[in-house]
């Protein structure tokens, strides 16, 4: 007699969580993760508050409002980096490790479907990422309390990060199913991550140079080159333009110390400057021209200029979805039995 299993009752997921969450390793990973992020937040906060409030005059004080946004972007950047580092490390052994421990065949010969096994592995990896993201919420809350960030922005950013982790998990599980050994699987997974992140930056830079060498035109390098890059997507989703921040109704957002501006000097801000590169009025690749903001009535122009930006996050979500599906299909096919050779 058998019973029906719901997706969250996936035995592989339950077992993985029991195995992973009850070990000292996970506690160590979370502790290290929070210590690193906490140190970053503390260091940035001290540096920024000292820099902003230690000067003379009103300008320093009003700029303090950008601290919240800056902290948010810095934390988000490091969260993205850690996810890029942790997800492949935790997922690369998912199938290859079972193969090495000689436990894979016992699962394959049970009534678990190959898709069920793969989904269990991916869900376990995503659950770990969710745990890390939830654990880091108090640090993000610091920037929320300082101001300049809405709760919705935090949720959207975390959602994109979680989706990136999901896509990366699917790709890494596929790597794990393709390569027999754990070491090979880890190397392949990190190789893909480096290609997705570093490779896309390099490709974009090369295309920018080619674009520039053709002389003055308005063509930007194609944004799809960056569509695999989670950092660019995170930078895009955290972007608020380069002038004062506007709410959905076009009104300037004020923090406790004055208008909140968008120039955060964070790595995400730098990444945005790359993707927004275009020929400026001097014929050089440069940062976007400052958006002329007239609080009294020029809001539409500002919003129009913001609309010129490359919509990377949309392309990222589509590309990641495709890659995730490919990863799931590849891993499922690799685990399917009976097969011509032992899997």
């Amino acid at each position: 007699m058998t019973s029906v299993q719901l997706p969250w009752q996936n035995p592989v997921l339950a077992r993985e969580l029991k195995q992973r969450m009850s070990t000292p390793r996970i506690m160590l990973v979370i502790t290290l993760y929070l210590v690193v992020l906490g140190a970053i937040v503390l260091g940035l906060y001290n540096a920024r508050t000292g820099q902003r409030t230690g000067g003379f005059g009103q300008a320093g004080i009003t700029q303090v409002a950008t601290i919240g946004q800056g902290l948010f972007e810095w934390v988000l950047f490091f969260m993205a980096l850690l996810v890029l580092f942790i997800v492949p490390g935790f997922t690369a052994a998912s199938i290859a490790g079972e193969r090495e421990r000689q436990t894979l065949r016992a699962m394959q010969i049970s009534l678990l479907s190959p898709f069920g096994i793969v989904v269990g592995k991916v869900m376990a990896s995503v659950a770990l990422t969710m745990l890390l993201l939830v654990a880091s919420l108090p640090l993000l809350a610091v920037s929320y309390l300082i101001g300049g960030i809405t709760f919705g922005e935090i949720l959207i950013s975390l959602g994109v990060l979680l989706f990136a982790a999901f896509s990366l998990s699917c790709i890494t599980v596929a790597c794990s199913s393709l390569v027999k050994g754990v070491t090979g699987s880890i190397l392949l997974a990190y190789g893909i991550v480096i290609a997705m992140v570093g490779g896309s930056f390099i490709a974009f830079g090369v295309l920018s140079e080619i674009d520039q060498s053709r002389g003055f035109d308005q063509a930007d390098p194609p944004s799809w080159v960056m569509a695999t890059n989670p950092l660019v997507a995170i930078a895009d989703v955290a972007d608020r333009g380069s002038g004062p921040q506007l709410d959905p109704f076009g009104n300037v957002i004020f923090g406790p110390f004055g208008p909140v501006t968008n120039n955060t000097d964070s790595p995400l801000s730098f990444i945005r400057s790359m993707t927004e590169s275009r020929f400026n009025q001097f014929g050089e690749i440069g940062f976007p021209e400052p958006i002329p903001v007239d609080i009294g009535g020029a809001i539409p122009e500002a919003r129009d200029l913001q609309a010129d930006r490359i919509p990377i996050v949309g392309e990222f979500l589509i590309t990641s979805s495709v890659l995730a599906v490919i990863g799931l299909v590849v891993a499922t096919r690799r685990l399917r039995t009976p097969a011509a050779t032992e899997r």
């Binding site: 007699m1 029906v4 035995p11 029991k18 016992a106 049970s110």
Partner: peptide, 26 residues
């Protein structure tokens, strides 16, 4: 199989529970 493939970090009962679930037993 010819090799003892077990999940060493599980208890014996958790190991058997996993396979009871894998065989969809009530």
């Amino acid at each position: 199989p010819d090799t003892i493939g077990v999940y060493g970090d599980l208890t014996v009962e958790d190991y058997l529970r996993f396979f009871a679930a894998a065989y969809r037993l009530p």
